[in-house]
Write a protein that binds this DNA or RNA. Structure first.
Lengths: 385, 385
DNA sequence: TTGAAAGCGCTAACAT
DNA sequence: ATGTTAGCGCTTTCAA
């Protein structure tokens, strides 16, 4: 029989819910609620506790939760021996702090969101890794979200990051993002955002890009200097600023060298491999076909190369091609691809550093900056004849 | 000056508390209480609350937190109108539930950990994406950790996952993982683990692999059938079971066709590109150099191809090469690479499904299984003469 | 140096 | 149908 914890009577006891997995009782006589002491509850703790808490450490050591907490945090006001005992017990019980509880009370999640449109194609994974390293050094965990080039998924991802109470986000938009409410929502909640690569001009945030304009200009200029005269451009979705900038680089290079711009030679591709192939084929099957193609990126260039090969068009003799980003395989295809190199890892690091800086300084002191990293021409065989 | 909402006088107005975050006024003349209409109240609501809580919604609507909670959860016992009001207010305040608080009280994080050795090389990113899709459908978020082939980082990552209270983990070990305490630690805490690709035999968990043995066997058999007689193998770190299995496939294929095994033709590479090149060069500079090389993976095969090219060795005429995994670039190099295809996405999906099944059933009912998916020979030019 | 108690944002059992 | 209350695991005043 259960005795009341206060009056020690048995007759007026009723069950009154369950607290922390243990039966709670109520004594109608003295109106007290109680659970049975630890010992009686022992059988429950028999098997290693699924997830021990500071409370378990405290109980085992017969000290208070606060002391345990302080010991674990290496707080100054703590006896060295107590601390040692706590750490040992934590080890023994295989204790792991509960991030959620810590975040809740600290109002700080120590987490940064990374939002990218995709991560199969080398560029984003490589950048993420570099960014993550910087975050880790600064003590931040990272949540990686990929939007799969879908604006809807991107919005959903922002909600996830918001609910995860990330302290900041580095982001690259999808090709179909035209509405920025979800990003604004981050700002409204005082969560800093740094855009990289595919930036959002409409928002006053820090940005990290490569010099897309100059890169494209250099690439096209290089083609011109190698004797190509009818230079086409397979560009990107016009929604992306980088597409516009690379297109402008292309246009200005042509202008500079007094080569007439031909509208039919400018095709925007939707970033899928299939469409890249289609665009390349369309250009290469023209009666007045171009003798060179400057592509938005190396993926596109590769597809263009294959389209050319399957049409028996010789690269670089009959067709010069060049791309952007210097993906690793660009050096491996035959002929190796001329490309504009981006400092991918550096972009990731810079973006993360800017973000952490912003998080640290808060919205008051922080001034958004736009860091434009240099693009470098890497000449290989695909464009030299 | 504030005018009375009723008599339009100014002289008798006093402040009278704050209601729902807005200043309330009292007119002593006409004894009316009022707040200013939305527009005028703007300055107060000027800065949006950093992160509204259910409490804010409750206060604004003058109802209790529980009602708000129930409304947001679409609980059955809730008045449709109340619910509507709550949802509208949530929208208006730009409310986002706090995952940490929810997880804490629900004792359920709704999060699954994905632990991989790296994610630059197509294989893991592609698999992760497929796995993540399955997780998302089941309502789980995902934390992606990469160990960078370091056992220490792997251990640290497990701690992160543990502290994040993930409900399960799919994992692929690093090449240097020889001690499994960190994985055991997950099991001890009743967190199911499913290994894929680089599995841990020492642990009784579900596993997903491709048929490494059979794949390698098929690849080597194919080389033999194409007339290659001195077939070398650049394998992987012996610590990985997949290295052993692929090696065994190689050995058994040689045996089957009565080709003597030559120790000097078997080199384990450490999974870095540089070392792949070194191994290939070592083989190709032998006096009695092999006439074919079966590589652990396509990355290695690519480096082997380049080593051969720079030594003026013709592929496939003087050297047949084949690899494993069918990375996208394998079809793009010249000559295109023969390879053993893995159903990468399917592996990711299967692993995640097994994990979720395990999470759902709990440790009581769940029986670990080992799913071995088929490997398929894809013949291209690099091995056909 | 330590303990007791309050509270982070949320859910759920219980009471009404 | 709604409110009241306790508590998830933790940190942090405040007292002792």
């Amino acid at each position: 029989m259960i005795k009341c914890a206060q009056c020690k009577q048995v007759h007026a006891i009723t069950k009154a819910g369950i607290v922390r997995g243990r039966q709670r009782y109520h004594c109608k006589d003295c109106h007290v609620y109680f659970t049975l002491p630890e010992a009686a509850a022992a059988p429950v703790a028999e098997k290693q506790q699924a997830m021990p808490t500071i409370r378990d450490i405290a109980t085992a050591l017969n000290i208070s939760k606060s002391t345990v907490s302080r010991a674990l945090q290496a707080h100054s006001d703590i006896n060295a021996q107590t601390r040692k005992a706590v750490l040992e017990m934590a080890q023994k019980l295989n204790y792991h702090p509960n991030y959620m509880a810590q975040s809740l009370v600290n109002k700080k999640s120590n987490t940064i969101g990374i939002l990218v449109p995709e991560f199969v194609n080398y560029y984003f994974p490589a950048l993420i890794i570099a960014a993550q390293e910087v975050a880790a050094e600064a003590g931040y965990n990272v949540i990686i979200c990929q939007s799969q080039e879908s604006a809807g998924t991107e919005k959903a991802n922002v909600d996830v990051l918001l609910s995860g109470r990330v302290e900041g986000v580095i982001a690259s938009m999808t090709k179909e993002t035209k509405q920025y409410d979800h990003f604004r929502s981050l700002e409204q909640h005082n969560i800093p955002v740094v855009f990289f690569n595919r930036i959002c001009e409409a928002m006053n945030t820090s940005r990290v890009t490569v010099n897309d304009y100059e890169g494209a200009y250099k690439g096209v200029e290089h083609l011109i200097k190698n004797g190509y005269k009818k230079i086409a451009h397979i560009g990107g979705p016009p929604s992306l600023l980088l597409s516009q900038n690379r297109l402008n680089g292309y246009l200005d290079a042509l202008k500079k060298y007094r080569i007439p711009v031909q509208e039919k030679y400018i095709l925007p591709y939707n970033l899928t491999g299939r469409h890249a192939t289609q665009c390349a084929q369309k250009l290469l099957k023209m009666r007045d076909r171009p003798d060179a193609i400057f592509c938005l990126n190396d993926i596109c260039t590769t597809h263009t190369l294959f389209a050319a090969k399957s049409l028996q068009i010789q690269v670089p003799q009959q067709l010069g091609i060049a791309g952007f980003s210097n993906n690793p395989f660009s050096a491996h295809v035959e002929p190796a691809l001329t490309t504009i190199e981006q400092p991918i890892q550096e972009m990731g690091r810079v973006a993360m550093r800017l973000l952490i800086d912003h998080i640290t300084k808060g919205f008051g002191k922080y001034k958004p900056v736009h860091r434009i990293l240099p693009a470098k021409l890497v000449v290989r065989q695909s464009s030299v004849r």
